[in-house]
């Protein structure tokens, strides 16, 4: 094919090499390289947003503070009797997960905003990797969630939380939280690319995330709930990851919760993630 000439200076790379096999391998590698590079670029964009507009971090910073305080002191006296361990020890992993689910839920709201403002048109007319627009936001919110997890653990330790599950499991806690939230961010992304409106995206987020996090072992042992709720709370992925985190911090069986958590995360990233990317590609 006849390559058009750029008017001056830079010219884009020519299309990949020509034998079918080489073309296939070449285009996969080429593809992969640009998925990474473009995602990094858009992650940078989002991190600059947080840097220039630190108000965006207000709820990430004060949310855990408020929740830890509220549940430890206000509800702790009443609820705390129902848990076998110290209530703050019981509570921390739940608050970690809940708060960071809200943090990564920003992914979809931001994507909807990009669409409303015509950004996505610009991106889609560029020769960049398709998944990077979503990927950049997912990675950026995950980074924030990771630091938020460390901050939350810090506050909890100040108000009396202690690790009883050993050094390495304890250390892995923020990583596990971030990994799960990375998965969850793709759900939010799917919502964002589907509704394309920030208002709607944030209400859906709210009405999904609140019940999902409350109807789990986040705040109270599920045995105290009515039977029909226990069934739901038992299969809720939030319960799996909260229990995993709790046992990492406080000791207890890990593998039983690690496996479902891992499977859910894989499903979110690859299943929901591909669906979100597919929907994004089909935007018209």
């Amino acid at each position: 094919m006849n390559l058009p000439q750029a008017v001056n200076g830079w010219r884009p790379e020519p299309p990949a090499p020509s034998t079918p096999v080489r073309e296939a391998i070449g285009s996969v590698l080429y593809e992969f390289r640009w998925i990474i590079a473009d995602t990094a670029m858009l992650t940078w964009r989002m991190l600059m947003h947080y840097r220039r507009n630190p108000e965006m971090l207000l709820s990430t910073i004060f949310g855990p503070l408020m929740f830890l305080f509220l549940f430890t002191y206000v509800f702790g006296g009443a609820i705390g009797r129902s848990t076998e361990i110290n209530y703050i020890d019981y509570l921390l992993p739940g608050v970690l997960i809940q708060n960071n689910i809200f943090t990564v839920m920003q992914t979809g709201i931001g994507l909807a905003d990009d669409m409303q403002k015509g950004f996505v048109d610009r991106y889609r007319s560029l020769p960049m990797a398709r998944s990077a627009v979503i990927g950049g936001r997912v990675v950026a919110t995950t980074v924030i969630a990771f630091f938020s997890a460390i901050w939350t653990i810090g506050i909890a330790v100040v108000i009396g939380m202690r690790f009883h599950g050993g050094f390495w499991p304890g250390l892995s806690l923020p990583f596990v939280v971030a990994l799960f939230c990375f998965g969850f961010a793709w759900i939010s992304a799917l919502v964002g690319v589907s509704v394309r409106d920030t208002q709607t995206a944030s209400s859906i987020t709210f009405f999904v995330a609140i019940p999902l996090t409350f109807l789990s072992s986040t705040f109270v042992p599920i045995e105290t709930m009515p039977g029909w709720l226990q069934a739901f709370a038992g299969v809720n992925p939030i319960t799996q990851v909260v229990n995993l985190s709790r046992n990492l911090a406080q000791g207890g069986p890990i593998a039983v919760y690690a496996l479902p958590t891992f499977l859910w995360t894989v499903f979110f990233v690859f299943g929901i993630g591909s669906l979100a990317t597919w929907r994004y590609k089909r935007i018209s």
Binding site: R45, M48, L126, P127
Partner: peptide
């Protein structure tokens, strides 16, 4: 389609990088 929180230069830079 310009990003409000980035500078003018950063906006152009980002577009250029996304053109690879």
């Amino acid at each position: 389609a310009v990003d409000d929180l980035l500078t003018g230069r950063e906006n152009i830079h980002m577009a250029g990088r996304l053109y690879h």
